[in-house]
Design a protein around this nucleic acid. Structure first.
Lengths: 205, 205
DNA sequence: AATTTTCCTGACCGTATGGTCAAGAAAAGA
DNA sequence: TCTTTTCTTGACCATACGGTCAGGAAAATT
């Protein structure tokens, strides 16, 4: 009479190996896309055998979905941090800076996300609808309130968010191109100054 | 004594079928990425048999590279159209608008390019170096000249280009996400107004 | 120590996929 | 018309890949 789904806290080995696998998978998926990634590659990078990978996850898709779910949280955190009580201009600019820092510190996550959306978000559509959309709707309302209060120039909040996402993530997603075109060592600082100026000028009432 | 590489003008059948194949391949590569695309899919979409595909192209990679090479031209055309004799502000804004229109009219090309660069541009690095970089260098010089003449605000020309590319291509590359977040019918017009305002405010001296 | 549970792997399987080939069908050239 | 060249395909091949399984090793539990 075995319990079909015994709720057991994961052992130390389980925690370690799942982490190893997810980290390896993030590397591989973000570099090769879903189809380009192979279990053998993930296994090799994780230092585990392929059957052992399948012991911890149900399959390739399970790993991918797990990564995407984890990603969503850390990905949207900066958006949730916007303080409705703060100064509108500074809140938005701080958000831009946080997103740019994420692009530098978590480029694999950015590329994983880009890959998924680029293919039409086949494994993430529900999450976009249930998690991202409500948050964006709230943020749009907040920004519209700030605009109505005369604190920000009149812009479409959604197009503003698109611009912020596009410009900041560009440095992670199109890194290969950026590196060809910029010899400079400090791309990050140039980007920071540029985006700060761009969004400041856009939003000043 | 057969000439090993007889320079023959392509027959009508050859022209038609190569076009069919490239169009089908563009569709498939841009939707599934390089690894996700299969010759069977391309063949089915082109209405030809798989061996026939291989009669016209040496292999999968050959098709992909051919597409990328063709892409580069049409992709950079709007940049070449910037007129050094024109009004700086209007030239840059016209470029933004052209890029946005391309994003709407040629989304497959945009996604093909994005896919390739996302994976580190493994099949396009030479082209970026030899074709894109010189053009960007020239354009950067042009913009710096305009800035020095007091016609535009002082911005880093390369970061400006990144911002233009990122924001305009976003509507093609992240279409799946845009569609979730915007119920509106006319995303294009909203984007046009938004980007016009953003870059105008950024660049006004 | 004995037993149970968890963890791990070599060998294997079915399918998908890029690519080949021999030979026939259709155009083009004479 | 006859011949040559171009075009087309069904059948086939080798490899890669996601996934399975039986059984052994290592931990944990008793």
């Amino acid at each position: 009479m075995n319990d079909p789904s015994p709720i057991r806290k994961p052992s130390r080995i389980q925690q370690r190996n799942r982490k190893l696998i997810l980290d390896a998978a993030l590397e591989v998926f973000s570099n090769h896309g879903y189809r380009g990634a192979t279990l053998d590659l993930i296994a090799a990078r994780a230092g585990l055998s392929k059957p052992n990978i399948l012991y911890y996850f149900e399959g390739k898709e399970d790993i991918h979905v797990t990564l995407l779910n984890q990603l969503m949280d850390s990905w949207l955190a900066p958006l949730r941090e916007i303080d409705p009580m703060g100064d509108p201009m500074e809140e938005v600019l701080a958000y831009v800076h946080r997103k740019l820092e994420m692009s530098r510190d978590l480029p694999r996550e950015s590329r994983l996300f880009a890959n998924e959306v680029l293919q039409g978000a086949p494994r993430m559509a529900p999450h976009l609808e249930t998690v991202l959309k409500p948050l964006v709707d709230d943020t749009a309302d907040l920004i519209e309130g700030w605009i109505a209060a005369g604190k920000l120039a009149a812009v479409d909040p959604r197009h503003l968010l698109f611009s912020i996402w596009a410009t900041t993530q560009h440095y992670a997603d199109f890194d290969a191109q950026v590196r060809v075109l910029m010899d400079e060592a400090d791309v990050q600082e140039g980007a920071r100054a540029h985006l700060d100026m761009m969004f400041r000028r856009l939003l000043v009432p």
